[in-house]
Design a protein around this nucleic acid. Structure first.
Lengths: 214, 214
DNA sequence: GCAAAAGTGTTTGAGGTACACCCATGC
DNA sequence: GCATGGGTGTACCTCAAACACTTTTGC
């Protein structure tokens, strides 16, 4: 089956940058490419948009296929379409940013047996296509737009300590935050509440566990 | 000449929302459609992306064709691609926002003799496709991102009064601003300077003219 | 007892907000 | 002289930033 047009048409893909927090650091899901071009390099999960499928729906499909996520936060970063970004044909990609708690991500090897894993954002491998540039812009977007509440709601697991939340905020902002100021502001925000539980994980005072308020 | 692919490909267009300030109000350039679909309705200027042309270059081309603008501010708003947004075929559009002083915009009738004119953003006519939704998102983007300096640099003519600049800021923000607070903040910003000239235009004290600092 | 992370308040400065009157002109 | 928009200063309040010590545990 072939499809014919009077004018040349580009191919359109969606790519998804799935961010999460691992060990207090920002991490992103990448898949290893098996085929040309850029075989062996790592890339954002993505694929072609079906002809009768919305862009967002295509992004959800890719997200689910690679990470098992069926709900959560997904927003468009933008369209990238330099004519030379893919040697096969003209490909315009629409990039989405997804946010999820690390414990909800179930990485799946794709149908073509490619690897999928999390990388720290500051320890990225060599990336295929223009994905390094795209991830740089995505990280800037997170820094500009994600506030403490969004981080607590979208990137943290159900239960977390205030230190973990602070580390997540520091990872997103890329700068250290004063502990007392952070907790004072968090208190005023009224977005988290203590669960009553504690976590003991070392030779020091146990940390109270918190959850996001409904 | 025809072009054939193994999988169906969508068409890709760029549309440009050109904003300016007219009489202290936000205005946008629209063109009247001559042909089906939505013949007679008004739409954002735009057109198909050439197969070897970047998205931004296509946006510049459309901008120049409709308004004569060759320089200025142009940023991507995002991609819009619901499958049913165009009845002809699957069309994904990448929308750009342009900002310009009203006195630099030279509206041109397109090659197919369509009308082009400025509309106040709060007095829009019926719009083609999903352009009403797109303009709503574009206006939100302006409200969120444009600060006083950006308005002075990108939307105002070379010479302007402080009242005109304040009206522009109020138009973008959609809310009234206190005159003394506005001028105090503007003074601290150090982005405008008096030209030394004045403008007399009515039965009242003349207004000092300002320009943006280099 | 000591190493390690958890938890806890006050002070200061900057910036934003509210608010009312005189000035220069055209008619 | 009066109607019209141009131009000016102060008081208050909120929020962000700087800053150090005590608490509780495991070993």
């Amino acid at each position: 089956m072939t499809y014919t047009y009077e004018h040349p048409h580009p191919a359109v893909t969606v790519d998804v940058a799935v961010f999460t927090i691992v060990a207090g650091r920002l991490a992103v899901v990448l898949v290893r490419r098996a085929a040309w071009p850029h075989a062996g390099k790592w890339a954002l999960p993505g694929g072609f948009v079906d002809i009768d499928e919305s862009l967002k729906r295509a992004a959800w499909r890719e997200l689910r296929e690679e990470t098992g996520l069926k709900a959560g936060y997904l927003e468009q970063l933008g369209a990238f379409g330099r004519p030379d970004r893919d040697p096969r044909e003209r490909v315009i990609t629409v990039v989405y940013i997804a946010l999820a708690a690390a414990d909800r991500i179930e990485l799946r090897a794709g149908s073509d047996a490619k690897d999928a894993r999390l990388f720290f954002l500051d320890e990225l491998p060599e990336l295929a296509f223009d994905h390094a540039r795209i991830l740089q812009l995505a990280a800037e977007r997170l820094r500009d737009r994600l506030d403490t509440e969004a981080i607590a709601r979208r990137l943290m697991p159900v239960c977390f300590t205030l230190t973990e939340l602070q580390q997540a905020c520091e990872a997103v902002a890329g700068a250290p935050i004063d502990k007392r100021n952070f907790r004072k502001r968090l208190d005023a925000l009224e977005v988290v509440e203590p669960t009553g539980e504690e976590r003991r994980d070392g030779p020091h005072r146990p940390a109270r566990l918190y959850r996001v308020k409904r």
